[in-house]
Simulated assay, not measured.
Amino acid sequence: MMKQLIDLNEPYRRNYVPKPGDKQRKKMIALARLMNYGDMKTIYARLDNWARDQKFKKGWMAHNPAELDLLVAIFEQKVYTHYLTTLN
């Protein structure tokens, strides 16, 4: 039964191509979860608001991969490290 279900989904999985910048967004989500930002809906809203306050003034999903690389670096080096220093 399970093999039949897997076989039905195979054409979809073979043709699936994630959006550009998907890995960067997932990394930011993972960091936000480590910082206890809340549930997924709250995380998306907070990351979107944070991204709008940064250099490019665009929503979180509107950035291209090059811009997301910069945002991830800022998020890791500034926001996450600040969170870690406030723990102690």
Results as ranks from 00 to 15, higher is better:
Ala62Val: 00
Val72Glu: 04
Ala30Asp: 04
Asp22Ile: 09
Thr86Ser: 13
Arg33Lys: 15
Arg13Asp: 10
Glu76Ile: 06
Asn9Cys: 15
Lys41Asn: 15
Arg33Gln: 04
Phe56Trp: 03
Thr42Asp: 02
Val72Thr: 07
Trp60Tyr: 15
Val79Ser: 12
Gln54Ile: 08
Thr42Cys: 02
Leu70Asp: 12
Asn49Asp: 14
Tyr12Pro: 02
Pro18Ala: 09
Asp53Thr: 15
Leu34Phe: 13
Ile74Leu: 12
Ala45Lys: 00
Met1Thr: 11
Asp22Asn: 11
Thr81Trp: 09
Ile6Leu: 12
Met61Arg: 12
Ala62Pro: 02
Asp69Trp: 00
Arg46Gly: 08
Leu8Ala: 11
Arg25Pro: 03
Ile43Ser: 00
Met40Ala: 05
Leu68Cys: 05
Arg46Val: 05
Phe56Lys: 04
Leu31Asn: 09
Leu5Phe: 11
Tyr37Ser: 00
Leu34Ser: 15
Val72Tyr: 02
Met40Asp: 10
Leu84Asp: 01
Pro65Phe: 00
Lys26Cys: 03
Asn36Asp: 07
Val72Met: 01
Thr86Gln: 12
Asp48Met: 02
Met35Ser: 07
Ala51Ser: 15
Tyr44Gln: 03
Pro20Gly: 05
His82Cys: 06
Met28Cys: 11
Lys27Leu: 07
Lys3Thr: 14
Arg46Gln: 15
Ala73Pro: 01
Val79His: 14
Glu67Tyr: 03
Ala51Leu: 05
Ala51Arg: 04
Ala32Val: 01
Ala62Ile: 01
Gln24Trp: 07
Arg13Cys: 10
Ala32Thr: 01
Lys78Asp: 13
Trp60Gly: 01
Asp7Thr: 12
Ala62Trp: 00
Ala45Tyr: 02
Gln77Gly: 15
Tyr16Met: 13
Leu70Gln: 06
Ile74Phe: 12
Asn49Lys: 14
Glu67Leu: 06
Ala45Val: 00
Pro18Leu: 09
Ala66Ser: 10
Arg52Ile: 06
Ala73Phe: 06
